[in-house]
């Protein structure tokens, strides 16, 4: 368990550093799909997302002017949101999975 914790903490710290610090240095060139859309002429068919007014739209925090802090903060908030959602979901599924295994152990004859 102690060695497990080491891997988990490493992944968490790496995620925060990548999203919170390194992301500032990411390339701002269009990604593959955007580039192809521009070159072949369908970029204009893109519409604004209904969430374009989100306080974290485009990986920035509304009201925070410093680009580095704004982007880093949005990245960390996104990480926390994913960790909360995915962690909660997997915890529930994992408990159910373990319960399934136990049920199977108790009665092998029962059909699933």
């Amino acid at each position: 368990m102690k060695r497990n914790a080491k891997l988990l903490v490493t992944l968490l710290v790496a995620s925060f550093l990548i999203a919170g610090v390194a992301s500032f240095y990411a390339s701002s060139h269009p990604d593959g799909l955007e580039y192809v859309a521009e070159k072949t002429g369908f970029m204009d068919s893109a519409e604004d997302s209904p969430t374009a007014d989100s306080p974290f739209a485009d990986y920035g925090v509304k009201g925070v002017d410093d680009e580095r802090i704004s982007g880093g903060l949005a990245g960390v908030i996104g990480c926390v949101a994913v960790l909360g959602l995915a962690g909660g979901l997997f915890f529930l599924i994992g408990r159910r999975g373990s319960a399934d295994d136990e049920a199977k152990d108790e009665s092998d004859t029962e059909k699933v």
Binding site: N4, L7, L8, L11, L12, A14, S15, F16, I18, A19, A22, S23, A26, S27, S28, H29, D31, Y59, G75, G78, C79, V82, L83, L85, A86, G87, G88, F90, F91, I93, G94, R95, G97, S98, D101
Partner: peptide
Amino acid sequence: LDDRTAPLAGLVATFVFAGQMINF
């Protein structure tokens, strides 16, 4: 998923989110 792998899976999702912010 079980009690052992569920936390790892949550952190893998988090790591993918972070990784996707890095456009190379």
